[in-house]
């Protein structure tokens, strides 16, 4: 198991992670409502997971090892800082784009400009909804940067995105939520990931009176 190299969290850390999971639930709930509204489909989420992980382990935790993925990454600015990622296997990104554009994909290989834009915008809308909910809950203000889409091998793409996020640190606090479209859209699923940086973690825990 990939998590073997990550240190076991202490009891104190577990309490904090549980609080962060609750924060993740609030953000993911709103993000999912936005995604459902944007696509006109029912979308469900699993219970979010908050963990302290090595950046190299995240593709494995998401069960995306060896897959080609589309990752929309956004820097989070304001009172809460960090990164938000919207991650889908590439085939699911194509399906999502087809729903948003209302037509079958015209690309045989790489996504075209409009398809890329639709996926970036989906990432922007869900990340913004996530942050709006978190900001309202914590009584702070935050906003995402312009979204950036990258497509490639999961380990490589996530590693690049996450190392940008974490800087020199190999260990990050990561709140992940898996979403899945119900009924007609067979197997369309992906992940929201929120990676608060250290000052943001302190701000969140202080707002939750856990500092």
């Amino acid at each position: 198991m990939a998590q073997a190299s990550t240190p076991e969290p202490s009891r104190h850390d577990r309490i904090r992670l549980d609080a962060l999971r609750e924060v993740g639930t609030i953000g993911a709930g709103h993000a999912t409502t936005a995604l459902a509204k944007m696509t006109g489909r029912r979308v469900m989420i699993d219970v979010p997971a908050a963990s302290i992980v090595d950046v190299s382990e995240i593709a494995g935790i998401l069960q995306l090892d060896g897959q080609v993925v589309a990752v929309v990454s956004l820097r989070v600015m304001g009172d809460i800082t960090g990164h938000a990622l919207f991650v889908l296997p590439e085939s699911n990104a194509v399906k999502l784009s087809e729903i948003l554009l209302g037509k079958k994909s015209e690309s045989s290989g790489e996504l075209n400009l409009m398809e890329r834009s639709s996926i970036e915008e989906a990432g922007n809308v869900v990340a913004s909804a996530y942050l709006n909910a978190l900001s309202d809950f914590l009584g702070v203000m935050s906003m995402p940067s312009v979204p950036l889409l990258a497509v490639g091998d999961s380990a490589e793409i996530l590693d690049t995105a996450l190392r940008t996020v974490s800087g020199a640190s190999e260990i990050v606090v990561c709140i992940t939520t898996r979403f899945v479209f119900e009924e007609s859209v067979d197997g369309l699923a992906g992940h929201y990931i929120f990676l608060p940086d250290r000052p943001a973690l302190r701000a969140i825990l202080a707002a939750l009176q856990l500092d």
Binding site: A34, N124, V125, S128, N132, D136, M141, M143
Partner: peptide, 9 residues
């Protein structure tokens, strides 16, 4: 027309 629905913004 924005995804940012926070009151302050």
């Amino acid at each position: 027309c924005s995804a940012m629905g926070q009151q302050a913004l």
